[in-house]
Design a protein around this nucleic acid. Structure first.
Length: 297
DNA sequence: AAGTGAACCTGAAGGC
DNA sequence: TGCCTTCAGGTTCACT
């Protein structure tokens, strides 16, 4: 489910309910996700105030008073849902299920904002590829899961010049380069496909082939940088993509999936104006790549 | 270095 | 109805 836009959507959902609140209870309903849950998870979090909910690439960070940071990754199927207090005026679809937990609800946080009406934040992950790790504010950047991450594909940091520098002399296919979190961090299978279509670049092309010669600029690298920034930004505005299940913390759906141009559209005509191509699917590194063989070169 | 395949795990969808 | 295969938004590791 979650690439950068989905994780950012989750962050924005959690922020108003968690920031500034105190965690009054943490319940773990199994000992492990992808990794064993941190041994001291419950005792470290219980009773502490949440100071901020952050994000880096596809990682969520729950910052706690006094220094601890809970690093969360949603894997393929992880999600958080928020259960507002009974009688809250905030709309939520889970009021009636307040006392029930569903299959694959693995970690339950109860937070208290001072009104005397606690909310529950429930982490659900059927496939358990997600994980939670404890770190500390002071050493967060050096945490093994975060230290090697590349540039965020948001804002102005990612430009043609940087793409050129990152991709120069690399023989790996562009698609593989986009999925390499050490180069650009947060792009997954969907947005890699979509960005390459927008940039009219073949997923097969060697990454190094779009790099500018020293001292020059590369139109292809500029196009790819722009396509990445735009598709990520648009997806965040749309609340991410919801494919097989709900994504947003309030139970509503993101709607960017309706704007996919190539992803999961094998056999459909290429949506580009006056392109006669048909969207194709191939496997690269064990993942499906969707692309237009006609206009993506 | 690049490419492939497998592994982790569950569930949905499609074919028969 | 059931049984089987294939595939899925991520990451990592072993091997050619």
């Amino acid at each position: 489910m979650p690439e950068l836009p989905e994780v950012e959507t989750v962050r924005r959902g959690l922020q108003p309910v968690m920031e500034g609140t105190r965690i009054v209870k943490v319940e773990t309903r199994r000992p492990d996700l992808r990794f064993p849950l941190p041994e001291r998870l419950v005792e470290t979090l219980t009773g502490r105030h949440v100071t901020a909910i952050g994000r880096r690439a596809k990682y969520l960070m729950m910052h706690l008073e006094g220094g601890p940071v809970l690093i969360c990754h949603l894997g393929m199927s992880g999600s958080f849902r928020i259960e507002e207090p009974d009688g809250s005026s905030t709309p939520g679809v889970f009021h009636h299920e307040r006392s029930k937990l569903a299959a694959h609800d693995h970690v339950v946080f109860t937070v208290e904002n001072g009104s005397g009406r606690p909310s529950r934040i429930v982490f659900n992950d059927p496939r358990r590829f997600g994980f939670m790790l404890l770190s500390d504010e002071a050493s967060l950047d050096e945490h093994p899961m975060l230290a090697g991450l590349g540039t965020e594909p948001t804002g102005n940091a990612l430009g043609g010049a940087l793409i050129s520098d990152l991709f120069r002399d690399r023989a790996m296919p562009l698609k593989a380069a986009l999925l390499d979190q050490r180069l650009i961090a947060g792009v997954g299978n969907i947005y890699a496909c979509e960005a390459l279509w927008r940039a009219k670049l073949s997923p097969r092309r060697a990454a190094g082939s779009i790099a500018a010669k020293p001292g020059k600029t590369s139109q292809r690298a500029e196009r790819l940088a722009k396509a990445l920034r735009e598709v990520i930004a648009e997806a965040i505005v749309a609340g991410g993509s919801s494919l097989r299940d709900h994504i947003r913390t309030d139970g509503s759906l993101g709607y960017f999936q309706h704007r996919f141009k190539v992803y999961d559209r094998e056999g459909e005509p290429c949506p580009r104006y006056e392109c006669s191509g048909v969207i194709a699917r191939m496997m690269q590194g064990g993942r499906s790549t969707f692309y237009c063989p006609v206009c993506q070169r």
